[in-house]
């Protein structure tokens, strides 16, 4: 297998690597770059667990080749919280709303939420729920994820909402 040299930024750090053309971005991030928070749930683009942010957009890293990420700026779930440890608002909201159980699908969900909220973005609840339809969770029945979506949308629009359970 021929190798290709790629340069890219992951969580603010520059990386240079020689990768085989067939290596997926998800495998590269996990095995070469060491970001094991990128979880591979299906490897065929349905479950969404491997979602990372590539140049500002939520991307399924199992459907992208590492060589396609040459020159890209990538954020994985490890790069979301403040360096000091403070959780990103999406992470904080997911914890408050019991949006996870086993936590395997969670990194992907968090990355999609992070890509679509914050920094002046104003998604509607419907848009964010629609985006969540690309993420499979086998544990929670999506109850806490739905509450987190509602809370994040309210935060983005400056409204307050009681995010409590039924």
């Amino acid at each position: 297998m021929s190798k290709h040299t790629i340069e890219l930024t992951i969580n603010g750090l520059r990386h240079t690597a020689d990768v085989e053309a067939r290596v997926s971005l998800s495998d590269f991030l996990r095995e070469d770059a060491g970001y094991t928070g990128v979880h591979v749930g299906c490897d065929h683009g349905v479950c969404g667990a491997c979602t990372v942010i590539v140049d500002g957009k939520a991307v399924r890293s199992c459907l992208m080749l590492a060589v396609q990420a040459h020159g890209a700026d990538i954020t994985t779930v490890e790069g979301l919280a403040e360096p000091g440890g403070a959780l990103h608002p999406v992470q904080e909201t997911m914890a408050q709303e019991y949006g996870l159980q086993c936590g395997f699908c969670t990194p992907g969900i968090v990355m999609t939420m992070a890509a679509l909220t914050g920094e002046g973005k104003r998604p509607t609840e419907e848009q964010l729920i629609d985006a969540m339809s690309g993420h499979l969770c086998r544990c929670t029945g999506y109850q806490g994820i739905r509450r987190a979506v509602r809370k994040l949308v309210a935060a983005d629009t400056g409204e307050t909402v009681d995010g409590g359970a039924a």
Binding site: Y35, T36, G37, V38, T76, V77, E78, L80, A81, L87, Q91, M94, A95, L100, C102, G103, F104, T106, P107, V110
Partner: peptide, 9 residues
């Protein structure tokens, strides 16, 4: 949650 939400599981 803290470890699972930050990719440290």
């Amino acid at each position: 949650d803290a470890r699972l939400l930050t990719g440290r599981g």
